[in-house]
């Protein structure tokens, strides 16, 4: 991902870091990691924070599983026979059904910002990986100018915050979760941070 250095300079460092975490989540939730990715994940170190601890756990698990096992885990969690254990879509979490009003609202907001789903993709846009990708893109300005924090906050508050933490908690505790359990913990801790950080902008 090549970023225009002139643009990156205007984004404060902490926000770039947020974008990196979003991208990591998007990458791992979009498809199961291949061997090389698993290997680089296993090299990660965490610190004492909740997020850091979750990251350390992820690294530990990544060192123990194979790409095949992880692919099967992904299959059981999100695809399954009939359906996977979890449905990682905002609309489902918010209304109990897929493709409901929250998706329509998201599409409207995406159109306003100028984001469009790729032709080859057939998942609805409210998939958790898509939302993580969009958050990263909004922070770094992949869809034009980086979005102001207040706007990011609005997008997050409307489309991510109401359900993402619930989803990550479910992922953490899902029956089929091994590697993805740790990813759930990372997501949960990160959503906590995002929610609190956005709240600091208030008033």
């Amino acid at each position: 991902m090549a970023l225009d250095p002139a643009v990156t300079a205007e984004i404060i460092e902490e926000d770039l870091l947020r974008a990196h975490v979003y991208r990591l989540l998007a990458k791992l939730l979009r498809a199961s990691p291949d061997k090389d990715t698993l290997h680089s994940i296993s090299q990660l170190n965490g610190d004492d924070s909740e997020l850091g601890q979750a990251l350390a756990t992820l690294a530990k698990v990544a060192g123990k599983v194979t790409a095949e096992q992880t692919a099967e885990e992904y299959q059981n969690l999100f695809i399954g026979v009939g359906r996977g254990e979890l449905l990682p879509y905002g609309s489902y979490y918010l209304t109990g059904f897929l493709n409901e009003k929250p998706l329509a609202k998201l599409r409207k907001d995406m159109a306003a910002i100028g984001i469009e789903r790729r032709d080859a993709v057939c998942e609805p846009e409210d998939h958790i990986a898509a939302l993580c990708e969009m958050m990263a893109g909004l922070i770094t300005g992949e869809y034009g100018e980086p979005l102001a924090l207040a706007e990011q906050k609005r997008f997050y508050g409307t489309h991510v915050e109401p359900w993402a933490a619930h989803f990550f908690t479910d992922l953490e505790g899902a029956r089929s979760s091994k590697l993805y359990g740790a990813i759930g913990s990372i997501g949960k801790a990160f959503m906590d941070i995002e929610t609190s950080a956005f709240r600091m902008l208030e008033q």
Binding site: E14, L17, H20, K27, D47, L55, I193
Partner: peptide
């Protein structure tokens, strides 16, 4: 202080 920095360093590598 939130640990985002530690996470992001690794994330950048993986990404």
């Amino acid at each position: 202080l939130s640990g985002v920095a530690a996470a992001a360093g690794g994330a950048a590598l993986v990404n």
